[in-house]
Design a protein around this nucleic acid. Structure first.
Length: 276
DNA sequence: CACGAGACCTGTTCGC
DNA sequence: TGCGAACAGGTCTCGT
């Protein structure tokens, strides 16, 4: 489920709660039920269980696609990968079909990590900075502007699609938002980054920001059975729109495979210039 | 440095 | 209806 807008939406839900459940900032962890041990990346299971017990959730935030739980002693990082979700509910019931870890909180609450495909992971770290160092800049928090982005972009010879998916280049984009951004910027996914004109680079940065902000405004995208809640799927320009008319020019949307990822684009709006 | 393939997993959908 | 193939919002590792 998760790219930046979906993770951001989840963070806000965990902080603010909803009609049925309260937010969980300030709650103390009273135990943890690990139902699939592979979920815990670091430290080992015994230490994880021992260390997390009794810590208070001081804050919940996001870095790239990581959920960041600042606890009284440590930082809990959660990466949802392809199919993860975080659910809050009462204890004593299964909140979903594939709960791999349930964190028990005070007030009879639990925070459940549902994760059908078992790709998602958790880390309990004294200092999360080491993991964050490998990540590129955040696209929305002011770390990056159109000029900086364009400079980085023009220094690279990779194709735009895999480059934008590379979390060490820019953090938070995934398959949906890359395809959507490239269409908005009218750039072909196979264009080489260093073939862009500076104005095209700036336009791409604006498209990335606009697409992500719109995704957040819509509470993310709901696709398949994995995640419900957001509405961004109703305004996809190209993602999963194969053979549908382009909203701009009416040409049927194409689907190709790039780096083993489905890639959607308009063959008329997103041309590759001759000598690329 | 860039790229492609394979791995990690389960579930749904599509084509025959 | 059944069954296999293809596909899925991510990222890591390895070989070239």
């Amino acid at each position: 489920m998760p790219e930046l807008p979906e993770v951001e939406t989840i963070v806000r839900a965990l902080v603010n709660g909803n009609k049925e459940t309260p937010g969980i900032v300030g709650k103390t962890i009273l135990g943890v039920d690990i139902r699939w041990e592979g979920t815990i990346e670091e430290p080992d299971i015994d230490q994880f269980i021992r260390r997390i017990d009794g810590q208070r959730i001081e804050a919940i935030g996001r870095r790239a696609k990581y959920l960041v739980f600042t606890l009284s002693e440590d930082t809990l990082l959660v990466h949802l990968r392809m199919s993860g979700a975080m659910l809050i509910g009462p204890q004593g019931v299964d909140l979903a079909k594939h709960v791999r870890v349930a964190i028990l909180l005070e007030d009879d609450l639990q925070l459940a990590f549902n994760n059908p495909r078992k790709f998602g992971r958790m880390w309990l770290l004294a200092d999360p900075e080491e993991k964050f160092r490998k990540l590129g800049p955040e696209p929305l928090n002011g770390d990056l502007d159109a000029e900086k982005f364009t400079k980085k972009l023009l220094a690279r010879s990779r194709q735009l699609k895999p480059l934008l998916l590379d979390q060490s280049f820019i953090a938070g984009l995934g398959n949906i938002y890359v395809d959507e951004s490239l269409h908005l910027a009218k750039l072909h996914p196979l264009r080489l980054a260093n073939s862009l004109q500076p104005e095209e680079g700036r336009e791409l940065f604006r498209a990335v920001q606009n697409t992500l902000n719109e995704g957040i405004r819509q509470n993310g995208a709901s696709i398949d059975w994995v995640y419900r809640g957001g509405e961004f799927q109703n305004q996809f320009r190209v993602y999963q729109q194969t053979d549908q008319p382009c909203l701009v020019c009416g040409t049927p949307i194409s689907r190709i495979t790039v780096g083993q990822r489905g890639t959607h684009f308009c063959p008329r709006c997103q041309l590759i210039p001759e000598e690329d």
